[in-house]
């Protein structure tokens, strides 16, 4: 799975989460906007975290060197 595919999965999950909060907790436009913000922020945070770790391992400059004991 490449970077783009997984990012799309994150996007999909984000959209699903937004829709489900909209359906499950429909409490007027103001509250919905707040819920949307929460879901979006958390999706973006999680995606950033994943993307950073993924990108860092894409072209490794350091490779794992096993310990002598093993």
């Amino acid at each position: 799975m490449g970077f783009v595919v997984t990012s799309l999965i994150f996007l999909l999950i984000g959209i699903i989460a937004c829709l489900s909060t909209r359906i499950c907790f429909n409490k007027g436009p103001s509250a919905n906007l707040f819920h949307l913000t929460l879901v979006l922020t958390s999706t973006i945070c999680c995606w950033m975290m994943w993307a950073i770790v993924y990108l860092a391992q894409m072209n490794p400059l350091i490779v794992p060197i096993l310990s002598d004991g093993e």
Partner: peptide
């Protein structure tokens, strides 16, 4: 593996 390391 213990000197140069593994390879991706």
């Amino acid at each position: 593996s213990t000197t140069i390391g593994l390879i991706k």
